[in-house]
Structure formats: structure tokens, C-alpha cells
Design a binder for these strands. Structure first.
Lengths: 221, 221
DNA sequence: TTCTTCATGTAATTAGTTACATGATTGA
DNA sequence: TCAATCATGTAACTAATTACATGAAGAA
């Protein structure tokens, strides 16, 4: 009832249901196709979450049979749309990143240089795969319009986010590979890229800041 | 014993212990200061994880007393260093992103335009906060050398990753804000930025790819 | 001496994952 | 008719979180 206990994943599903009704399998597919890149969840979670939405009165379930098997299709309710709108009005959390390969680069002095380079290679692989997907999707959008024409503007917003992200990671991995390659094989402490440090240190800090946010907690690495 | 059941979080802690021994509280602080940005974990987790390392023989615990309270300090063992090295040699997973505010932008047609703009504003806030931290840390590094001078090269690698990320998000949020601002208030379907779509669609797809990775699963949004 | 912040942990709960199981459909 | 893939779900487990509790130290 209270909708106070819904998670972001619940709302992600609810958002999909606001577009159209889906069977559970279709929901799982759609999560895999689109939300995977900024709200990834396991398939089994997607089978569970809509049940909660039904309990809360935010969705309805329709059961059919395909031969001998059950199929459940979910639709959003009016209260579901209200809850979604209320959630959309509240500012959401910033990006949270988990990046295991980067963790390994961070600790690289306790492993081999070859290992670090292999991790950077894996990151480049990821980047290029991502890039290929992005380009393929842009072409689809240009040529055939893509799915959900009425949502194209939103889709392109997210698309550009993914492109910027892949580009940034690509630039980084090229530079980082150069850096690590330049480290001496069994030498002492490698030297960082001081010119980069200088360049960042010289940047201005944006003046327009919220009141009360003026002291910078000693963050970063 | 088998170290097969260690999680990435276990290895993150183990990596910190490879640098020097820490008390649990110091570990938690260090996680908050540095790993937060690419392997964020709650404080209570950091109190639990070292116990497992001890059970596996990868670390040792030293108990002291501070007045009436216990303090546990952990150190890495030889087997711990071996396990860490073995882990570092295996390529790690690519980035995993959870981004609630972006999710809200994605579903923005079910809320108000003001809500979407507020979310973009929150993202800009995050970006600028991040930028300020990055610059402050670069200055620290330049001026006083920063903590762990022997790890500076690794630290700068990660630092540049964070800078690239913040820059990319900043560019994106500026553009996205313009886009959403241009959407008509209660109009029909907003038009996407076609010139951007064109530009991405026209990009080449990198030729040098691994064998077997030649088909692109229909990804993206 | 009181309040605040630093420091150290435990308990309860759950969101999420991995693994399993199996029916339907299609193409060779 | 066999194998592969599409489709639909459940069960078992745990990594991780939130919330709580409280001692120590320093400032006012």
C-alpha cells in the first residue's frame, strides 16, 4: 500500500509498464536491451519485482496459458502512474560505479605489469564493444526509426550518455596503456604523468555552487 | 582455505592490506576516501570482510585495547600476497553503472519537464562536486606529493579516469539540459537531436576485433 | 561537565545473484 | 525426431545495506 518500500528497481519496472504492458519475459528482455547500461539487474529479479507492484496496487497481472505453461502479463494502473510521477519528481541519486578491472589497475604494483596491461586490454575490449553497439543503434535509429518512436528524444538522451562514456573510457584506456607500457619492467617506483596533474591542478573550480557546499571533503584516491 | 569464495570486495580489502596494515576504522576511512569512486561499499561490510581474510589465512588480526574498547588491526600474510597477485593476473569485469537520476530522465515523459530538469540539475551538482574534488586532489599531489608517494603513478591513473568521467558527464548534462529545455511544455512528442544521431551513425566501427566477437548483439536503449 | 565528533563494532533485514528445472517452438 | 533455442518460472543462498549501540577524546 504505502509505496514507501519500493526500490529503484521497482520503479524501473514500473517505468517500463508505463510504456506498455509486457509479459515477464518481455520485461526481462527489455531490461537487458536498454536498462542494462544504467540499471543492471538479474533476470530472476525481474520476475519477482512485478509481483510486488501488484501487491501495492500499482500494476495488475493477467495470467494466460501457452500450451501447458503459464504466462503473466503486467499492466500499470492509475495509481501506478501516480506513484511513478511522484518518483520522477524527486531528484535521483548520482552515478554509482563498480569497476573491477580498474581496481586491479589501482593495485597493479602488487602484480605483474603484464597483468595490468591485460586488464587495460580488457577495458579496451569493453569500450570497443560498447562503441559498436552505440553506432549500430544510431544507424537503426536513423534508418528505421527504432522502437518506440514517441520515446526517441528520451532514448537519444541516454544514447548520448553512453557514447560520451565509451569515448571517455576509450581515451583513458589508450593513455593508461601508454603509461603502464612506459613503466620499467622491474624498476623502482614509476613516475606519474605530471603534466596531466599540473593541467588538472590549474583548472578553475566552478564558482556557482550551492550554499553550504563550499568546503570540499578531502576526496579522491 | 580455497580462496575460491572470495568476492571482489574481499580482494579490494586485501589490496589495501598489501599497502600497509590498517585498523578496521582506517580501512573504512580509506575505502571512503579512495575506493568509493569505483568500488563503493558500506562501512559495515568493511568490518566483516577482513574476518574472512583471516579465516582464509590471507591476513592476520591483532587485537589491542583503547581504554575499554577493542581495536583490531589487520596485516596481509605471504599467502595473502600470493592470492592478491593471482587475482590481479586475471582480467577483471568492465564497468557496471547504476544511475538513478538517469533512469528518471529516461522515463521523463511520464513526469513533468520540471522534474526532468531538476534531475539534470542534480547531475550537474554531482559533476561539479566531483570536479572540485579532482582539482583539489591534483593540487595536493602537485604541492605536497600526497599520501603514498610510491603509489603516485597508480593513483594518477585512477585520477585521470575520474577526471575523464566527470568531464564527460558534465558535457552531457549541459547538452541534455538544453535539449529538455527546448521541449515544448505540453506539446506532442519531442524531437531528438538528429544531428547527433547522424554523427554517431557515421562513425566507423573499429576493425581490430577479437575473432568470434564479430556480431553485435542488438544492444542499446 | 556536557556536547560533539571520532572510533568500533553488532544485529536484523533484504535486495540481489546463481543455479536449477522444464515446457514450447522451430528448423534440420 | 532430435537438438537447439526461446520462454517461464522457482529455490537456495549471500553479499550488502540500514539501523542501532556505545565508548573515547577533545572542545566549549
Amino acid at each position: 500500500m504505502s509505496t514507501g518500500d519500493l526500490t529503484t528497481t521497482s520503479y524501473a519496472i514500473l517505468g517500463l509498464l508505463a510504456i506498455r504492458p509486457w509479459s515477464t519475459y518481455e520485461l526481462a528482455q527489455q531490461m537487458e536491451r536498454s536498462l542494462k547500461h544504467f540499471w543492471p539487474r538479474a533476470q530472476s529479479r525481474i520476475y519477482e519485482e512485478p509481483k510486488r507492484l501488484v501487491r501495492e496496487g500499482l500494476a495488475t497481472a493477467t495470467k494466460e496459458r501457452v500450451g501447458n505453461r503459464p504466462r503473466t502479463t503486467y499492466s500499470i494502473t492509475g495509481r501506478g502512474r501516480d506513484a511513478l510521477a511522484a518518483w520522477l519528481a524527486r531528484p535521483g541519486a548520482g552515478p554509482v560505479i563498480e569497476f573491477e578491472a580498474l581496481l586491479k589497475v589501482f593495485f597493479s604494483e602488487h602484480g605483474t605489469r603484464a597483468g595490468a596491461l591485460a586488464n587495460l586490454g580488457a577495458i579496451r575490449e569493453w569500450t570497443q564493444q560498447q562503441h559498436a553497439e552505440n553506432v549500430a543503434f544510431a544507424r537503426l535509429l536513423r534508418d528505421s526509426g527504432g522502437p518506440f518512436p514517441e520515446r526517441r528524444a528520451q532514448i537519444v538522451l541516454i544514447g548520448r550518455f553512453l557514447v560520451e562514456l565509451a569515448d571517455a573510457l576509450d581515451r583513458w584506456s589508450v593513455w593508461a596503456t601508454e603509461q603502464v607500457s612506459a613503466w620499467s619492467d622491474e624498476g623502482g617506483v614509476p613516475e606519474p604523468d605530471w603534466s596531466f596533474v599540473e593541467q588538472v591542478a590549474a583548472r578553475p573550480i566552478a564558482a556557482a555552487r550551492l550554499p553550504g557546499a563550499s568546503d570540499y571533503p578531502s576526496g579522491s584516491v
